[in-house]
Amino acid sequence: MNTLMKSKPLNQNPIQPKQEHKKTVIEVNRLNLWYGEDQALKDIHMNIPENKATAIIGPSGCGKSTFIKTLNRMVELIPTVKITGNIFYREKNILDPKYRVEELRTRVGMVFQKPNPFPKSIYENVAYGPKIHGIKKKKILDEIVEKSLRDAAIWNEVKDRLHENAYGLSGGQQQRLCIARCLAIEPDVILMDEPTSALDPISTLKVEELVKKLKENYSIIIVTHNMQQAARISDQTAFFLNGELVEMDHTSKVFSNPRDKRTEDYITGRFG
């Protein structure tokens, strides 16, 4: 509630949904981002609720991937990037240079567009995160690996081949392994950047089921090209266009009764 009170005055943007009874996990405030001279994000305000799935939709190049990569500061890997504004994660400004980016990324995990397992065994892939954060005991690691793989709904498929190379798995299995790898360090928020765009329909369905289950315990932000997917799995939907946040509301509302003409044009397939 406290966060909400504080964010109210900044909330001049009329398109923000009312978020009564919900805690905000990430609060984005006047976020602008440039790649060199090109402005990719324009004055974004957004409150991301806890333990919900927030979908981000919009046509290619609208800034949706840039936006979620900003939430764990992965976007800074691009040397020409310039950011202004504030992003509060649990009330701390993560864009503050003093905020340790490694600390942020252990709390805000990420699943990428293309499955990117490490060229190691399935076990090592999941154990890597806990290991770099100082967990060394084999017994504990074994437990973490099993729990993470179970939570990512892939344990039954891989339990007999934990020590085989992860590249022997199918694309869909690799992506669920990457989700397990992300869960292994027990993040608070999970960012998903078009996690199913490289997968076949059945694997996509499995990942979607997984997202629905995971949002009980995690706050999920998922970028997707696929509007049906957004409608199926998310509680909130944000529509981005040309670097601007056009509209954000409950998913059912965005899809049935959008406030903005541009949103309506997009979801009815008139462009994009």
């Binding site: 764990n72 992965m74 890997l77 490694e102 600390e103 942020l104 990324r105 252990t106 995990g109 990420m110 990428f112 293309k114 990117n116 397992p117 490490f118 060229p119 190691k120 890597y128 995160g129 770099i132 954060h133 990457c178 790898r181 992300c182 360090i185």
Partner: peptide, 27 residues
């Protein structure tokens, strides 16, 4: 070694040193 693998490790909160020595070097 593809950048996506480095990003995967960085996304788990690995430092550049950990990425270089525990991911890229073995790969």
């Amino acid at each position: 070694v593809p950048n996506s693998i480095r990003e995967g490790a960085l996304g788990l909160g690995a430092t550049r040193f950990e990425v270089a020595f525990k991911i890229v070097l073995p790969a």
